[in-house]
Design a protein around this nucleic acid. Sequence first.
DNA 1: CGAGTTTGACCTGCGC
DNA 2: GCGCAGGTCAAACTCG
Length: 251
Amino acid sequence: MSFSHQVMLNQSLFEDPHMGFQAPHPNWALFSSLHYHHLHQSLRVPLLGSSSAGSDNNNNLSNSSSLASKDTDHVSTSFKLGEFEAPSVLHRSPTASHDIWPWGEAMTDHGSCMGSNKRISGGGSGADYHHHHHHHNHHLGIAAMKMKKAKVRRKIREPRFCFKTMSDVDVLDDGYKWRKYGQKVVKNTQHPRSYYRCTQDSCRVKKRVERLAEDPRMVITTYEGRHAHSPSNDQDNSDSAPSSTLNNFFW
DNA sequence: CGAGTTTGACCTGCGC
DNA sequence: GCGCAGGTCAAACTCG
């Protein structure tokens, strides 16, 4: 079955030469499926449409207007870009990319970094956790120190993008394995937001799933970061839905 | 027992 | 500084 997608990108992605287009535009906009391909290729980010195990033969999809994937080989997709709450980061040297952990950000000078940072930089041995004392150099990890050295003081975020999908399944199957690590009630909405991390060791990609307040039929999936590996889809699943024509372009 | 989820506590940024 | 909102941790728990 098909889904209608809308994708939101932050500006950095639009500046990616591979995207073949550029254009901050404050609203959701339609782009061709070709661009969608570029998006997935360059981001190595899942292409949806195949999954959602639930065989729920939704009717609702179809009428969802112009975006619906009527044409078999043209899943029209609409992207939205704009104010991601991510700060304007965007530019990172490619080399630094895996040393710097996006939200293990700027330590205060008094090494008061807590929580997330430690773990992040700890990388392998997450064992010692509780001794988070003053001494920066202890187990804070290279990343943190490098950051300090580099005088990075603001948050650095991985590229992220999101898309809306009309579906009653919350978590779309994108071929990667995810472990849930949190759930939050979002203000002014009925539905909670869930946080997932890629289970692949040392892959730090995250994903966030929530329902659109204005229209709970819509699932908003937000990816943050890039996978440095291919999806480890154990169970190759059965139905290659019509829209999966696209899937073959990747992986 | 291991892998994944649940869930309250905790952290951080931000606006007042 | 306070309080709120969002994001993450991690112990407890569930499920195979």
